[in-house]
Each structure stands twice: as structure tokens, then as C-alpha cells.
Design a protein around this nucleic acid. Structure first.
Lengths: 218, 218
DNA sequence: GAGTGTGAATGTATTCACAGCA
DNA sequence: TGCTGTGAATACATTCACACTC
């Protein structure tokens, strides 16, 4: 247990969890079954879990409810995480209105924007401040994470402010490559980049590949 | 050149491109400089490019404008890509309104929704159809890619319809693990999952790590 | 001299395969 | 018998290091 955990074990754990949540809590599931859903191997599932302990019953599998709790704890989801939104434009508003966050224990508590007409108001129940108030407000309200939804030009500045304010995890929606210290976890959601990758795939996939590699599908 | 291309070379190429676009076209840049921006090594940049040919000048580096064109071609961005949106709710609308797509050569040409009040209308200039018209319309209008922005329960169904309609690249925003044939490129944008990964990071990063691994920062 | 292009060396992730247990 | 947990084997990705060119 726990020699060295693969970089993206957390990614997979999150996916396992998503699947487990949809299942009956008292069902028993094998690593192979769970793996199939996430498009990986049973061995990978077992190894991912083995880094953190032994949760299965030999010869049986894993009890769904137990495993769900275990993974939740591993991911740190046994607490509420507080989130700050930087940028309350169209995208920012969509994020504020997205209910999925709260359901999963992520609460957007505060927003920042330079638009004077928004400052002092509440948007979807969330108070809006000017960015210069970030260090003070984020510390006071003990915010854990930041979402950046500003234009690309302002993204680095926003990140710098968040980091100065003590934030150690940032989800960036701006189409900009941010530079952050390595003790900050930066994740990127860049739609244009994703489409470009799909374009690459479409451009480079030849018919032969499609025909020869056709797999079992559902 | 071109023995076997790493899975995520396309991801990095897209990032290189983003940086090059911001630079003077006649500047010459070394692999090391380009790498620094993207947080990788010069060797990795050179290797990524070497899969596709030789584009640099020994002893000098790469001409920004030329490299930009080259990478654009590699990614298949020398054409317009047509996109279908499935689900015209809040998120769908935000996607329709997002101007970044068109700037990069991705045009949302058609949308699908089950909401009768939207069908037959145009949203942000894009006509809305009922999903049952997908196979016909997508073929007729020669759409290349699909965006799924429906509730999780309807996501698999939407994917199936897109695939039946001939779509080979799907960007899924629903919080659902979709099953698609391997000849379809599926990319996932799952905000909840991203936040969970950040929670994991925050839960498992100990102070010692922060202190010992402190790096150069800007 | 400076920096590309690339085989060889290293490091990391995934898969294999099986001992051991319910 | 069926499936976990895990070392060993394999595959894959990254980095190193240097011959070669402008």
C-alpha cells in the first residue's frame, strides 16, 4: 500500500465514485465490473485502491456503499469545500447557476468582478466584490478554491491574486497558460483546445483504423 | 519521424499553438523557450514536432509564423469544422454565445433540444431541431463534431444519436460516463470531477511538500 | 556557438499472472 | 471457485546527451 500513487489516480477515483453513486449501496461489485464502466482494467482499479488500503473481500468484490464512502474520504469529500469565482460574465453566471457544484459539496461563496454595476450586488445569492478585496475576503471567509472565468488577458492577474490570498487550487476556464508555483494545483478547462484535439483526431484517423479496430460496442 | 506519436502530443501541440499565436510572426523561438511556457522540456517540444517532420533551423530555432502554420495544419485547423450542439439549456446557451469557437474555426451550425418552445426557432442565429431529426440534418449539413450539454440522464442517448448520425468526435459536458465505440473520439468536461480532483490535491498535500518543493515562480 | 533532431537511458504507468483467502 | 491484492514484466512517455548543421 502506498508506494507511489500515479498522478491521475485521483481522476479515476472520481470516475469510480460517480459510477458507484448510481448503484444500490448493498450490492457487491468486482473490480472488473467497475473497470468496464470507466474503460480501464480490473487490475488498474485494484491497484488504484490498494494505494490507500484494502477495501475488498477476496473472492467477492467490493461493497458499493462502503467503497463509495472510502473513495469519498480519499478524495476529501467528507467536508464542504468553499469556492471563489473570479469573473461574473456570461460564463461566470453559468457557473453560479450550475447546481451540480452544491450537490457535490462545493459551495461558491463569493464572486469578484471589476464591473461596478455588479459590485455590492448578489448574483444567484452570491455577493460580488472588487478584486482588490480578494486577499481580505478570501482569508476572512476561509475560501479553499478558485474558479477563473475572466478574459484571457486578465487570467494571470486573477491567478496571482488568488494565490496571494492563500488559494492553493485553481480551476481556470480562460484560454491562457497560467504560471503558478508548484504548490498550487492548477486545472485547465479550455474548450478551444479540446476542439482542436478533436480536429486532430478527425484529421488523422484513417478509415482503415476505423474498420480494423471496430470493437464491441454496448 | 513518426514512429509512434504519444497519445497527448495533440494536447501539447494545441498549447504550443496558443502561445505562438500571441507572438510576432517573424521572431525565431527555440524549443527551450517554447517549452518553458508550456511547462515542459525542450526535448519534449522537439520530439513532438519531430513526429511530423523537421521544421527548425539547426543552431537557430523555429520561425514563429512558420511553426504556427505547421502546427495548424497538423491539428487540421486549415479548414472550418462544423459543430452540432445537443441541449440548448443554460450551459448550451453559454456555449452558443461563446465567441472563442468561431474565432478558432469551429462553427456551431445546428442545435437540438426537446423543448417544443425552442424547436423551429433560432438561438444566437443557430436553428434548433428536435433530436429525432439528428441523423437527417447532421448528414445533410455535413456536421463534423458534437457537443453534449444535456442532463446526465440523457447524455448516453444523445451520444448514440450523434454516432448513428455519423459523428466521430464528441465533447461531453454532462456528468456521465459515456460508452462509445473506439473509433469515436470522446472528450469529457466534467466540472464536478475536476473539483473533486482539486479536493484530493488539497487533502493530500502536506506542508512539508509545499516547503521543500518550493520552486522558482515567475 | 547555439540549438535541432534523434537514438539510448531512464522513469512512470499499465498490464500480467498468480499466491492466498473467503 | 472467484476475486482480491501485489510483485514482476511489459509498454509507454520523458529526459539525457550528443552528433550534426547553420
Amino acid at each position: 500500500m502506498r508506494d507511489n500513487i500515479p498522478e491521475n489516480a485521483a481522476v479515476r477515483l472520481s470516475l469510480y465514485l460517480r459510477h458507484l453513486r448510481k448503484m444500490k449501496k448493498d450490492k457487491v461489485i468486482s473490480s472488473e465490473e467497475l473497470a468496464e464502466f470507466i474503460r480501464t482494467s480490473g487490475a488498474r482499479v485494484r491497484k488504484d485502491l490498494s494505494f490507500f488500503g484494502q477495501f475488498g473481500t477476496t473472492g467477492k468484490g467490493y461493497v458499493v456503499g462502503e467503497l463509495e464512502d472510502t473513495i469519498s474520504k480519499i478524495l476529501g469529500l467528507d467536508q464542504v469545500w468553499t469556492v471563489a469565482l473570479v469573473g461574473a460574465g456570461k460564463l461566470g453566471m453559468a457557473l453560479l447557476e450550475y447546481s451540480g457544484f452544491k450537490e457535490s459539496g462545493f459551495h461558491i461563496r463569493i464572486a469578484f468582478d471589476v464591473d461596478q454595476s455588479k459590485i455590492g450586488e448578489k448574483l444567484v445569492g452570491v455577493p460580488v466584490y472588487h478584486p482588490y478585496q480578494m486577499p481580505k475576503e478570501i482569508r476572512q471567509q476561509e475560501i479553499n478554491m478558485g474558479l477563473i472565468a475572466v478574459p484571457a488577458e486578465a487570467a494571470q492577474e486573477s491567478a496571482d491574486l488568488l494565490i496571494i490570498s492563500g488559494i492553493r487550487a485553481i480551476l481556470n476556464f480562460a484560454s491562457a497558460t497560467l504560471i503558478v508555483p508548484s504548490y498550487v494545483k492548477l486545472m485547465q478547462v479550455d474548450l478551444t483546445s479540446q476542439l482542436e484535439i478533436m480536429a486532430y483526431f478527425l484529421s488523422h484517423t484513417r478509415e482503415e483504423k476505423i474498420l480494423t479496430k471496430r470493437p464491441k460496442w454496448r
